[in-house]
Design a protein around this nucleic acid. Structure first.
Lengths: 313, 313
DNA sequence: ACCGCTTACGAAAATCGTAACTATG
DNA sequence: CATAGTTACGATTTTCGTAAGCGGT
């Protein structure tokens, strides 16, 4: 008998995602199929090449050395597969799902433009944007659940690359109901009025905390929501003051629901820097294409300018 | 619905072989399946990428520009697939069929060593050596039916690379029954005794003809077989004299069935140069591995020596 | 009329999901 | 005991070969 290799691209894709996501279940979800089916695919591939690719002795399957060895090759093959579609049908040919994380603010300000541009240049790509706070954005990237993220903050993990996008001003706001008693934001104001902030996982909260400790300021946090919409609603209701990103707060200021509070120059809150984050080992073509569009949409400064805030490891 | 690419390695292999062999039927034979099934695979692939890969308007399917464009990528993917097997299981991992052409002489002198070495280092590879004469060897390579060939002569086709292996002496032989009347081979001998030669497609015949015209000699050809064994048998039977490669004739000389005839120095027959021939666009891993072994077995000179007779375009 | 490719259709094989089972922490 | 992975099995889908059909030389 003349047995050919019979390795399948689907098997290699299963390997690729199982390895990057670290879990069969996540990989199966990403590939739109059952754990069971994916498990069998991996077993098939292992039988095909005659070597175990995962070590199942522990709680979760860990990639073996043999697996690590062939993953880059599998990645290359998957990329070449995308290359073929691009070569034949142009950029429009790219087809598949791109999942990315995005902060609430970016979702409001830039998401529609990103989606529009992707729909124009890659009509066959399905986008799955997930709104979340900074820490979740980063973790989702690390777990491979998302291909990239648009959000503030950064990660010390060397596998994550971050590219500076723009700075956003943070402003203190409160309900007009409360505004009569507040002139400027200072230590006294913070003593007097409770602060409504986002959860500790959010980038703006990180700024808030580090700012307070740096300036030696104390404040009362009464709510920590994961949604800026919720924070805005609570602030509008007059429950306290909050530190919101300027573009986000603008909407409410324009309608008169919120009022911007001036702040002492000496205790100025630093700007919130937004970045494009992605895994350096994620060099698949499809996510890169979407990433590039997101970058072109969200990048404040012209691409030629070398920005010192780029922290690509 | 989230349709993924669904391009299959089998489809790409069908494309690859159909393109190189120029015919669906040949490709199907090479891949061990039916024309029908292969045709459908190609159609599947075309539907998958949304572009016709072959132009069926003519008598035979011709590769379109789109096809030419993706073939190198397909080739890369197939190679990476082989790479994976090699990476995981070492060189032993290579699996598949390697078909190559070989001249009768090489088949007698070197084939067993080639097969042995391949079996040792690549136990999973199935070899399909085909004995043929020079012109057929080259044509089989051009048609892609064989991956390489070991034989004399060369081809003007730029797609064929040829690497010098060794020189073989050609000697005139005859049956001992005739030897009484023959002392040396000269123009008189050639007038007197008929010449038994291989078919016009054989390398030794090419040498014989060019030698005769160069020296202004005439001879009577009475048989033109495609088998040196047949030529030897006829010569042993005493039907005439023949020009055989020295290593091949040795066996019969040793048994006394044939006798070597000295020849006038002035009309010496040039040596027959043997080459390893292959298509330069055949860079698949498996045939290259076998080719390298064949080269190491058959190459007379050490690999480090730069041989002026190498004619790799 | 031959050769090369496609289409039709029935049989065989592969793939997938539900669900039950096993093992780890 | 909750999470992660494997196994069993029936249903759907895919793949393949035989045989017939079609078009070009």
């Amino acid at each position: 008998m003349d047995k050919r290799s019979n390795i399948t691209l689907k098997q290699l894709e299963a390997l690729y995602w199982s390895a990057t996501l670290g879990t069969f279940a996540l990989a199966a979800e990403r590939l739109g199929m059952t754990q069971s089916a994916l498990s069998k695919r991996i077993v098939e591939l292992e039988q095909e090449i005659g070597t175990p690719l995962f070590d199942r002795s522990g709680a979760r399957a860990r990639v073996t050395d043999a697996g690590e060895c062939i993953i880059p090759k599998a990645k290359q093959m998957l990329n070449l597969c995308d290359d073929i579609l691009i070569a034949v049908r142009g950029e429009h040919g790219l087809r598949g799902i791109c999942r990315f994380g995005i902060s609430q603010l970016m979702a409001i300000t830039s998401l529609s433009e990103i989606v529009t541009k992707v729909r124009v240049s890659h009509p066959e790509i399905v986008l799955e944007p997930r709104v979340a706070v900074t820490q979740e954005l980063i973790q989702d990237i690390l777990k491979g659940e998302t291909d990239f993220a648009l959000g503030p903050g950064s990660s010390p993990d060397p596998v994550i690359a971050s590219l500076y996008l723009r700075s956003v001003k943070l402003i203190w706001v409160c309900s007009p109901k409360l505004s009569s008693g507040i002139e400027v934001v200072n230590s006294e104001t913070l003593q007097q009025y409770p602060v409504i902030s986002m959860s500790t996982h959010a980038g703006s909260t990180a700024i808030l905390n580090s700012w307070a400790t740096a300036k030696g300021l104390k404040f009362r946090r009464i709510v920590a929501s994961n949604s800026p919409e919720a924070v805005a609603a609570l602030t509008i209701a007059g429950l306290g003051i909050s530190l919101l990103s300027s573009p986000f707060a603008e909407r409410f200021i324009a309608t008169g629901e919120l009022r911007a509070l001036p702040i002492d120059q000496e205790i100025a809150v630093p700007d919130l820097d937004y970045f494009l984050h992605w895994r350096t080992d994620n060099d698949r073509i499809l996510p890169k294409a979407v990433r590039d569009i997101a970058l072109s949409v969200c990048r404040d400064t012209p691409a030629v300018e070398t920005n010192p805030r780029e922290i690509v490891p």
